[in-house]
Design a protein around this nucleic acid. Structure first.
Lengths: 134, 134
DNA sequence: GTATTTGCAAATGATTTGCAGTGCT
DNA sequence: AGCACTGCAAATCATTTGCAAATAC
């Protein structure tokens, strides 16, 4: 399957636990360790938290997944994909992706810093359209 | 003094512990709880970690300081100031501020999301000019 | 004087580690 | 077969809490 290939292309063995992790991560979009643990046990009752942590860390090492740290919230994880920003609703907690133009003014600031930029993390927080109505 | 006023204007009592926290934070620019604890004990050997955590949380509540969560690193804190992004060196760990134009293309993406944006956190990581030379 | 803050010790929560057994390739 | 992965229990690290004594205003 697709997910098996995703693991192998990163030099990782395709164990059922890992496939389940990726499948859930793909399905949820963004997911915390806790949520992952709850959901994965529904299908895979024997999995241990330690295994989850070990696998998440391994997948981070090979940049198959990405860590999203959010002020005031639990860390979430997502499958690595093209650059995008995150926007979080302070009211309902929903997190969604938004696109942004990498040639924005931000690039100028980076150039001026003379850093060799490898990664950008952007997290915006505010109130989503649904919650604004309430 | 300046820092005393900073506390009072946020309705917080100006205890020596709090003044020391702000002074170190101001001096360091960005600092983690650990670093704060090490340094603060040099001047203030009796302070407890619990007090540090309590004060950091109180100051976050009144938005006197801001939390910077960074993938793969410890959370750092800084005194609240005008909007800016952070750039971190993956090699030496140094974190510095960079300015960005708030009217960048990013704003368009936010408008399109129909969120009411209240806060933006941008953390860039890469290699700083000094480390590139090595 | 009163309400808040401090420091301690203990509790809780999050993450990591060691190791024996199991499973992928 | 061989090395990597899993699950368990225990260890470690991070953060919070309860409470009595101290302190800011």
């Amino acid at each position: 399957m697709k997910h098996e290939h995703l693991l192998k292309s990163h030099q990782l063995k395709a164990t059922p636990q890992r496939l389940a992790i990726i499948q859930l991560m793909h399905q949820a979009g963004h997911i915390s360790i806790d949520e992952l643990y709850q959901k994965i046990r529904e299908k895979f009752s024997s999995i241990s938290l330690a295994t989850l942590y070990k696998n998440v860390n391994t997948m981070l090492d090979v940049t198959l997944i990405r860590e999203i740290k959010i002020a005031g919230q639990k860390t979430k994880y997502e499958i690595e994909k093209e650059a995008h920003a995150h926007i979080m609703c302070k009211s309902c907690g929903e997190l969604k992706d938004i696109e942004y133009d990498p040639h924005s003014i931000l690039q100028k600031s980076i150039e001026m810093s003379h850093y060799k930029a490898e990664d950008i993390s952007i997290v915006i927080s505010g109130v989503c359209p649904e919650c604004q109505k309430k």
